[in-house]
Amino acid sequence: MKTKILENKGLLVFLLIALLFPLFSVSSSSVLYTGTLVLIYVIITNGLNVLIGYGGQISIGHASFLAIGAYVSAIFTLNFGISFVLAIILSGLVTALIGFIVGLPAVKLSGHFLAVATLGFGVAVPEVLLKWDAVTGGFSGLFPERPIILGVVYDTDLKLYFLALGITVIVTLLINNLIKGRIGRAFVAIRESEVAATSMGINVPFYKALMFSVSAFYTGVAGSLYAHFIGFISPHDFNINISFTVLAMAIIGGLSSKIGPIIGALVLTFIPQFTDHVPGLSLVLTGVAMVIVILFLPEGLASISGKFKRKSQRKRKNAFFTNEERVKAGEKSVL
Rank of each mutant, 00 (worst) to 15 (best):
S83Y: 02
F217A: 00
F238I: 07
L225C: 05
V204I: 07
V327N: 07
Y226W: 14
G264P: 04
E331F: 11
I294G: 03
L163S: 04
F143A: 13
K9N: 13
N241I: 08
F76P: 06
A117N: 10
F270L: 14
V128Y: 08
V135I: 15
L335S: 11
D133M: 07
R182E: 15
M1P: 12
A319V: 08
I40G: 11
L160M: 15
A96Y: 11
H236Q: 13
I251Q: 08
R182D: 14
K2N: 09
L129T: 05
P205R: 02
D155Y: 11
L225N: 05
G120K: 07
E331I: 13
H62T: 09
I292P: 00
V102Q: 03
G166I: 13
I75H: 08
H236L: 13
E127W: 09
L37E: 14
V123K: 06
V94H: 10
V293N: 10
G55R: 02
L15K: 05
H112P: 02
P205C: 03
G223K: 00
I52F: 15
Q57M: 15
G55W: 00
F187E: 09
G81A: 09
D157T: 05
V214K: 01
L109N: 06
A209M: 05
S59H: 06
E127P: 00
H228W: 04
I68V: 15
F296H: 02
T286M: 14
T245M: 09
V50E: 04
S29M: 12
I230N: 06
I233D: 06
A134K: 10
L225W: 10
L48D: 07
I17V: 15
G69V: 04
H112I: 15
A70L: 09
I170G: 03
G300D: 04
S110D: 01
S27N: 15
S110C: 04
I262W: 11
E192K: 10
K180F: 03
L295F: 10
E194H: 01
M249S: 11
F84A: 08
E324I: 15
P279D: 12
F187Q: 11
N323P: 00
